[in-house]
Amino acid sequence: MTALIELNGITKVLKGQEQPRTILDGVGLSVHPGESLAIVGRSGSGKSTLLSVLGLFDRPDQGSYLLDGTEISRLPERRAAKLRSSHFGFVFQRFFLLKHLTAAQNVAMALVNGQGWLPRRQRRAKVMAALEEVGIAHLAKNRPAKMSGGEQQRVAIARALVRQPRILLADEPTGALDTETGTLVIDALQGVTARGCALILVTHDRDHAARMGRILHLNEGVLAEQKVAA
């Protein structure tokens, strides 16, 4: 099967310090549709930087990044933004919900982003479907302040899913949650692989990592496969 994502020799050097520091050192990675994988490693090992490169937040200094076989490592920002909108969903450790918006409006934020325009009715239907998918449609009119941490993270997941991305990038999404709520969040994230969306999870939690199809270990900028799920 053709890889959805293909990284080859990705290198990222942190400049602006006394000594330039290599954060990613020739990283190679293939991700297929519907696949789930976890990236683990110590703090500062480059996990978030790798996720930034994967999510087109940042450009690698060297290497190639193929998405559906197309080189995208040097895309201009305008096209990168379009790809982020159409192909990627993001979930972060901090939920980054806007406190002045309701859950539905927070989810709709990903639809009102200048990449095409949906009429209000269609927008609302998509938002409600995404909230339904993570099991919190009944909280659509609630503002973040009236929701628990787990509910807020599920709103963030609904926001990531509302455009039906092909790749979901999650950066320690359970880091601010208790174990039980974290498990529910991982359940919700794993659900997306069933429809062909690839899930890349950055986590410190071994149990959550173990639930992914593959575990990759990042150490000193070098990525290595840790185990293959049976």
Partner: peptide, 19 residues
Amino acid sequence: VEEFALRRAVGTPRALLAG
């Protein structure tokens, strides 16, 4: 800052942020 960064993350172009 966080709101604008988040908006960029979900695909909002820089020009729209300025807009």
